[in-house]
């Protein structure tokens, strides 16, 4: 066991963790933040995406001990005072959520994208979510949601609905 201290969604935590515990398991099982999902556990699907010092990472491939002194943000940090975030609302409005399993990871990836590129092109949005698999929506609705929050819904025409 190693003692770690970190912030998650702005809140400070101090915990003893086993060295072989992933950040994903730590968030879900030790902190009870079960919004972050485990799909593949091996970097392929992006369901476990969280922000780690402001950058997206696959939390299934990060050790909890590596998070000592770091700031982590998860899907639970999106809604404030019971009100959904702009991204969450846009996902809802554009039907970018079906089964919802990919959604927490998608939102974290698109959140980071919007931090670094407030008005992303369609190609930049696709690159931003290339590591996030969605088996339901076909992605178009997700791209539309991101175009909408960034005030560029007119670019929707660049998307082809199959």
């Amino acid at each position: 066991m190693t003692r770690i201290s970190l912030t998650v969604n702005g809140k400070r935590y101090e915990r003893d963790v086993a060295e072989n515990r992933t950040l994903l398991r730590f968030l879900r099982e030790d902190l009870g933040l079960i919004g972050t999902k485990e799909g593949c556990g091996a970097g392929e699907c992006g369901a476990c995406t969280v922000l780690f010092d402001g950058l997206t990472v696959n939390s299934c491939m990060v050790l909890a001990v590596e998070a000592d002194g770091r700031a982590v943000e998860t899907i639970e940090g999106e809604a404030k005072d019971g009100k959904l975030s702009d991204l969450q609302e846009a996902f809802q409005k554009h039907h970018a959520v079906q089964c919802g399993f990919c959604t927490p990871g998608m939102i974290m990836s698109t959140r980071e994208l919007l931090h670094r590129t407030p008005k992303p092109t369609v190609a930049e949005i696709k690159e931003g979510i290339e590591g996030n698999f969605c088996r339901c929506t076909g992605y178009q609705q997700i791209v539309e949601a991101v175009l909408d929050v960034s005030g560029q819904l007119e670019k929707k025409g660049e998307l082809r609905h199959a």
Partner: peptide
């Protein structure tokens, strides 16, 4: 190489 979030690590 890989995906955006993998490239972050």
């Amino acid at each position: 190489l890989a995906s955006y979030q993998i490239r972050n690590r």
